[in-house]
């Protein structure tokens, strides 16, 4: 009997948690909202890019991303948090680029992938606006 009581408590805890969380996890933001957020991060800044990355759900995700992205020559590890920041709610990895350096977006993509996450596309300031860009196929 004890065990059934206990399993009921577990089930109740789980259901309560779901109810408290509104029954659904934080919903995926729309592409428009994500672009808006990327614009806030990047507007007027040619030395940062923002990468939409699936799987970003906690700040611990940044550990592996920082480890791999700081190996890239063009990443400015003196800016942001050792060169990167996360905008978890919009699933964006913000990467700081060294002043005057040319970045290779595919290398950023590979660094994020090696950290265990799935980069989809990225945003950058092109001098007039922030726009979405696709990684080049290899």
């Amino acid at each position: 009997m004890k065990i059934y009581t206990y399993l009921s408590i577990i089930l109740f805890s789980f259901v309560s948690q779901q109810v408290q969380a509104g029954g659904e996890p934080v919903p995926e933001v729309s592409p428009e909202v994500r672009l808006e957020s990327a614009t806030e991060h990047l507007s007027g800044q040619s030395n940062q890019i923002a990468v939409f990355t699936k799987g970003l759900i906690c700040s611990s995700c940044a550990i592996g991303i920082r480890i791999h992205s700081k190996k890239l020559d063009f990443v400015d590890t003196k800016k942001l948090s050792k060169g990167t920041d996360l905008d978890i709610k919009n699933q964006l990895v913000i990467v700081a680029i060294k002043e005057g350096e040319t970045y290779d977006a595919n290398k950023v993509r590979d660094a994020i992938y090696k950290a265990g996450y799935d980069p989809v596309h990225y945003y950058a300031w092109d001098g007039e606006a922030v726009s979405m860009k696709n990684f080049t196929q290899e």
Binding site: P25, V26, P27, E28, V29, T53, K54, G55, L56, I57, C61, Q91, G116, Y117, D118
Partner: peptide, 9 residues
Amino acid sequence: KYFNLSERS
């Protein structure tokens, strides 16, 4: 086998 979704991992 990891899976990465927009709101979940």
